[in-house]
């Protein structure tokens, strides 16, 4: 088991390296000069070259080898080194020596430095991550809890009006995009009808868990509704399938009551694929719920990614892409390990 976990983590690290390399190559394949953006509007060629040097961007117009292959490769090598050992900015050694009072240290794992925001990417990400994590956590609890409960209800009432109503409504919820639901909740439920106050993120540390959860309600519902709709349908299908299994018939033949047959025998088997899905979906939401965060003006990773994209803030974008990728890879490993605990047949071998 331990050997398996180590092997999985090793493969995960390699995947992250490859992913970061691909990200770098993709960004530098674009015709836009990132140094121009980092330098700002009133930029002279000298200032631009200075910005380029300070960020460690590869030189422009020096041929394909220098500008598009060697340059990005060096930058990627620096970046990877920074992840492991930390690094100092400006990236250019001469510039650091010329003005030591301006040197910013970015300790490992260093994701980079944003010239645009004059902060390390780590600072920005660690400010945004708790917000995204809170929304994602609240949403995953909502969608798994209600998705599974309603799905089971639909399965046991299969063919009835309740079942048809649930299936119809979940299709309805599935069809509405998050920006519609989010805007509706914000404009009507919060602002026009005043049923709840307009949500704004309150950390547990400053407002307590009740306030934290209350403010997360509307964004979490917005994010959860779409997932919930698909979890209802999946749970329904999985439970219906496992209800036809031979071991469910065996349980009934033993005289076990209907409720125990449903929850202990049928649902237990149906939960396995659901746990896998929930783990991976949670991980992908952790990379930033862009639409939900934008609507409710929560400064999470999603909003950070949008503004980084608008400002061509390359270090921030790379940092977020890598973090989102790392979450998915990590979630994959965790889900696979979890699987061994859920399904005894996986444990051996």
């Amino acid at each position: 088991m331990l050997a398996y976990v180590i092997r999985r983590i090793f493969i995960g690290v390699i995947m992250l390296l490859v992913m970061s390399l691909v990200t770098f190559v993709l960004f530098f394949a674009s015709p836009v000069d990132p140094a121009q953006f980092a330098c700002g509007k009133n930029c002279s060629p000298e200032l631009r070259e200075q910005a380029r040097k300070s960020l460690g961007y590869p030189p422009r117009n020096q041929g394909v080898w220098e500008s598009n292959i060697k340059g990005p490769a060096n930058m990627w090598a620096d970046f990877t080194k920074g992840i492991v050992a930390g690094r100092d900015f400006p990236a250019d050694k001469e510039m650091r020596e010329a003005a030591p009072q301006n040197v910013v240290h970015c300790s490992a794992p260093c994701l980079g430095y944003s010239q645009y925001s004059v902060k390390t990417v780590n600072t920005m990400v660690s400010a945004a991550f708790p917000i995204t994590f809170s929304i994602a956590l609240a949403a995953v609890i909502l969608w798994v809890l209600f998705g599974v409960l309603i799905g089971v209800l639909a399965a046991v009432t299969k063919g009835s009006f309740i079942d048809r109503g649930i299936v119809g409504l979940s299709l309805f919820a599935y069809a509405f995009p998050a920006f519609f639901i989010g805007t509706f909740l914000l404009r009507y439920v919060a602002i026009k009808w005043g049923l709840v106050s307009v949500p704004s993120y309150t950390p547990i540390a400053s407002g307590g868990p009740a306030k934290w959860a209350f403010n997360l309600m509307l964004p979490a519902i917005t994010l959860a509704l779409l997932y919930m709709a698909s979890y209802v349908r999946m749970t329904r299908a999985f439970v219906l399938e496992s209800l036809t299994e031979d071991y469910v018939r065996t349980a009934r033949a033993k005289g076990v009551s209907g409720r125990v047959v449903l929850f202990k025998h049928a649902l237990r088997a149906a939960l396995t694929p659901l746990v896998t899905m929930a783990g991976l979906d949670f991980a992908s939401v952790l990379g930033g719920a862009i639409i939900t965060e934008s609507i409710f003006n929560f400064n999470g990773l999603g909003k950070l990614a949008v503004s980084a994209n608008n400002n061509y803030d390359l270090p921030v974008m790379i940092g977020i892409v890598l973090m989102a990728g790392a979450f998915v890879i990590l979630a994959n490993i965790i889900v696979d390990i979890l699987y061994a605990f859920i399904d005894p047949r996986v444990r051996v071998g």
């Binding site: 065996t250 009934r252 033949a253 005289g255 237990r268």
Partner: peptide
């Protein structure tokens, strides 16, 4: 009937691999 199942009448099935729950000992 539920109370009689397994107590007065019980049944063993054709394929014991699928007839036993894979997740319980």
């Amino acid at each position: 009937m539920r109370r009689r199942r397994g107590l007065d009448v019980s049944m063993i099935f054709q394929d014991p691999l699928s007839a036993m729950h894979p997740y319980y000992t």
